[in-house]
Each structure stands twice: as structure tokens, then as C-alpha cells.
Amino acid sequence: MEQQPILTVNKLNIDVSTPHGVTQVVRDVSFKIEAGKVFGFVGESGSGKTMTCMSLLNLLPGEAKVVKGSIKFRNKDILNCSAKDMRKARGSEIAMIMQNPMTAFNPVRTIGRHFIETLKTHLPITKQQARTMAIAYLEKADLPNPENLLKQYPFQLSGGMLQRVMIAITMSLNPSILIADEPTTALDATNQLQILQQLNWLRKEYDTGILLVSHDLGVIAQLADEVAVMYGGYIVEKAPVFKLFNRPMHPYTRVLLESRLGLTRRKIKSVQRVSVSSPNLINKENTCPFFERCEDADHTCVNDNLELKECEKDHLVRCVKSG
């Protein structure tokens, strides 16, 4: 039986106006998130991952604008939602975990105040009830000594602990979509595992759909069900996780997969072929975004036909040469 997706993004285009001209940061991005599934976004910095996430919450900065496309959450059109409705939806329906837990909290407020404020904003409960609830959820998140934790300030906790508190707060409102934007990047490798365990538990227990953004393929390989590889604002390849790792089709995905270090002592040579400079997103012609750095590129790559094509069932690639 086909599941009804909770969040549907269709042909999203975002432009950012800079002093040097208009930059096309997100181009033709479409994806769906289903309940209890994890959708992974991989890509280098500047590939448009965070901009896409921000647009899902209608939180794009002033210079950025959605110029085309639609974002549907259940039956609600996010882009044409009133500010009041959007405020209600944020946190309770669509929640977000940021990359750096140290800056996501207000440094002069205790953990308890953050937690209780969030609960009271969305639920008709008293402060005492909110406190009891907060303790219950901190316990569920396996955090030791929750009562004491509520009295502590963000700077008294480690990054890993803070991120877990963040997940506990997120969990307490039982959102149907969680956007995790590089949730483990700022953390140690040992904390990273715990956070991933927790996210996995969250989707199993509460059937939350997760959008997992990371530049780390290891994280994606562990948790994601479906993966989209972003490059220069485009989704260049989209496939179920096993297909993508076993049979990468786009040249960029291939280089990316080869660049994983792992614990073998093999030298990785292929990355040297990719040139040092990042793509220029201003005034881009109808050329493949990976053109300048691609080793297989030739004249056929300068093409108007830059569609995401299905080369196998569920496996989509944006490359003239494959499929």
C-alpha cells in the first residue's frame, strides 16, 4: 500500500539577491517525506541544503526568496500560510534541530525555562504540568538526573548533552516532521552515535518523518531510507540508500563515495581529478552544475535538457551521460 507523504516539495526554486547579482541557490528540488521514514540530503557546503530546510519552515532570510515551486505539508500550503498559522505549526508539527547546539539555546536561561516555555506555547497546560512533562521526556531521552538538568544553564552541559536535550524538547511536542540540519557535525564521533540512535528511536516510536541533512556519508548510510545528493543547488541524484551506495550513477556521487576515508589505509587518488574551485552559481547558463569539475565532461554536457531522469525504478539522475 502506498503511504501518503506528510511533506511534499515540488520543483522548489530559491534565489538569493547579493550585491553581485542574483544567485540561484536552489533549483528544481522535489522530494517527499513519509511518516517514519528518513530522507537524507548530502552535499558540500553551499549546495543549497540548508536553504531548502529553511524554506520548509518559511524561515528564509530576507535576501532569499522562493521564486517557483510549492511546499505542501499535509494539505497546507506552507509558502502561502499566514504568519500565525506558521507559528503554530513550527515546533508542534514541523520541528528543527540545528547544527550547533551551543548557539541554539539562550545562554542566560536554564534548560528548564527553555523546555517549559516551548511546552506552554503549544499546549494548554500549567507550569507545573509542563515541568512534569519535561522531566518525563528528558528521562525518555536517556538523560541522567533530569530534575537537576532543568536547573542547569546551557554552558554547563557538553555539546552532545545539549543536542540530546534539544531532541527531548522536540520529541515532547510529537511533531510529524523533524528537520535535522547537520545534527552531529559539531559533535565528537562518540556523541554522534548516541544522537543517531536517538533519532532512529524517535522515528520508530513516534513515526516521525525525518529530513536528515549531512555532508557525512557515514551518517546518511546509517540512518537514511532514501537519499538525495545535492550539487550546486540541484538534486543530481536521488535513490533508495542501498541503490545509491551500490550503484552510484552521477559522477559527483561517485567521487563523493570514493572519498570516504574509513579505517583502511588505502590512498584515495580520484579526488585529485576534481578541481579546487566550487561552482559559480551566478548567471548560470544551461550547463550541468558539475561541468567544470567533472572528469567525464565534454560538449554534450552543455545542454538545455537538464532533467532529473529515472534510469531505474526509483533511481533518478541528472546527468546527460547516464540513463
Partner: peptide, 18 residues
């Protein structure tokens, strides 16, 4: 804590049983 670079059949099992 080094994540395996490939998704394997029991990938979530690795995380859960850690």
C-alpha cells in the same frame, strides 16, 4: 564510533545494539 562507510543489512541493528 567510526561509522561503517556502507549501509549494511543490519545497519540500524549496529546502532541499536551499541
Amino acid at each position: 564510533s567510526v561509522l561503517p562507510p556502507y549501509p549494511s543489512g543490519e545497519r540500524l541493528g549496529i546502532i541499536n545494539n551499541m
